[in-house]
């Protein structure tokens, strides 16, 4: 199984753990990743509120390079995925858009190379049965909340899972042996960049999700979005302090917990680089007798 790999800007810096754990897990699962050479930013949340053409042109260049290599693109980040999927669909929908995109990127992009969310690749292409067979250290006793946020499940056009009750991450976590808890903030918006440019609005949005997580009785939150991670992990202490609460809720990228279940060393997955300490909780995982599968 081989995919072009688009890490995106966050995975090259603030979300480096997502990059490290993605590469390590894919290697262990025999998923070959070919990183798109000299990839550029997908335009994120700024291009599409500035100029709709820019929001098509930026991700199209990466997609076109992958198309020339004849590969679909595996994309870990939720925003990068949604932006890239958007241009894939747009060029397929309209010849006029395809022409304009070609003008911007100086090459053809026909939409033949598909944008795939990494979680979707795990869920649909590998499948939970296959993942379950590869588990060496089941996450027994770990109570997790799956947090999908927005851009994997909305808008409908680009989504790969249900908008109100997505299950792909739940089933992957169950296959890893974790206990998936239910909560109502599964697909709530974390406010994305509002915490950075309008904190009076952004912070309460994060606070609501953290409060909800705390009430659920879970040990941790699992996400697949570097923006959600920054908001829930980096800002957790800052937001808790304001109201005198210590949440102490580790937040993991789904690939980090996949890596743990595959018995990869936590540091190789970047788990020591979180703001909320995330290594200790992993010691809670009940040891199982005998290795290989459950």
């Amino acid at each position: 199984m081989k995919y072009a790999y688009y890490p995106g800007c966050s995975l090259d810096s603030t979300g480096i753990e997502f990059n490290l754990s993605t590469k390590a897990v894919c290697k262990a699962l025999n998923v070959e990743l070919w990183e798109i050479p000299d990839w550029n930013c997908c335009g994120s949340s700024s291009a599409h509120v500035t100029n709709p053409y820019l929001a098509l042109g930026l991700p199209a260049r990466n997609m076109a390079i992958a198309e020339e290599a004849g590969l679909d693109v595996a994309i870990p980040c939720a925003a990068c995925y949604a932006r890239s999927k958007n241009v894939e669909l747009a060029v397929k929908e309209s010849d006029d858009t395809r022409r304009k995109v070609a003008m911007m990127i100086g090459r053809e992009y026909k939409g033949e190379s598909k944008a795939r969310a990494l979680v979707d690749v795990f869920y649909h292409d590998l499948g939970t049965e296959m993942i379950k067979q590869k588990v060496q250290k089941p996450l027994k006793g770990l109570k997790v909340l799956t947090y999908y946020g927005c851009l994997f499940v909305r808008p409908t056009k680009t989504a790969f899972d249900d908008a109100e009750n997505p299950i792909s991450m739940d089933e992957i976590m169950t296959a890893l042996g974790a206990e998936v808890m239910s909560w109502s903030s599964k697909t709530e918006c974390c406010g994305a960049s509002l915490s950075a440019c309008k904190s009076t609005v952004g912070f309460p949005m994060i606070e609501k999700i953290l409060d909800d997580a705390q009430k659920s009785g879970a040990d941790c939150i699992v996400t697949a979005c570097p923006m959600c991670m920054a908001n829930l992990d980096m800002r957790q202490e800052q937001i808790g302090k304001k109201k005198g609460v210590h949440y102490g809720l580790p937040v993991y990228y789904i690939t980090e917990l996949l890596g743990i279940a595959l018995n990869l060393p936590p540091k190789s997955l970047g788990i020591d680089r979180h703001f909320v300490p995330a290594i200790d909780l992993l010691n809670k995982i009940e040891p199982t007798t005998g290795g290989g599968g459950q």
Partner: peptide
């Protein structure tokens, strides 16, 4: 978790063309 220096694109003209053409189209 931070790059001290910015990325230096190898195909700088590609980025320039995307921005310029997007502006013209708009």
């Amino acid at each position: 978790k931070l790059n001290l220096l910015p990325y230096r694109p190898k195909q700088k003209d590609d980025i320039k063309r995307i921005f310029e053409t997007a502006e013209q189209l708009m």
